[in-house]
Amino acid sequence: MKPDSYLPIVILLLGAVGFAVTPLALAWLWAKNFSPSKPGHDKNSIYECGLESTGDSWVQFNPGYYLYAIIFLVFDVEVVFLLPFATAFTGFGIGECLAMLVFILLLIEGLAWAYQKKVLTWT
């Protein structure tokens, strides 16, 4: 292997880095020469809806949101598996049917657990 066979890759790499860095460098130069930085209390504030933020951002959220979303996601994905199952249903043997049944039963078990834990009810 000839030593300069990596040269095109090095050139491409330089081009890629230059593509990213050059605008940033130009913007920095521009700001330095022409456009002064003007930070301020309002401009540096975190919240950007015109209102002053009050209180602490470290507040507790109800974990119910999270569990609800997870359960939704599980059953959403389940549908993806059920669809090919439904289209090929007539050509199945007993083995495939059992495997699919176990898959669904596992998920139903999870739903029953969530229901029993009262995750699905909102107070």
Binding site: S35, G40, D42, K43, S45, E48, C49, G50, L51, E52
Partner: peptide
């Protein structure tokens, strides 16, 4: 009005 002014302040030059 204070919200409008604050929004203006938060815009970059």
């Amino acid at each position: 009005a204070p919200q409008v002014v604050r929004l203006y302040n938060q815009m970059p030059e």
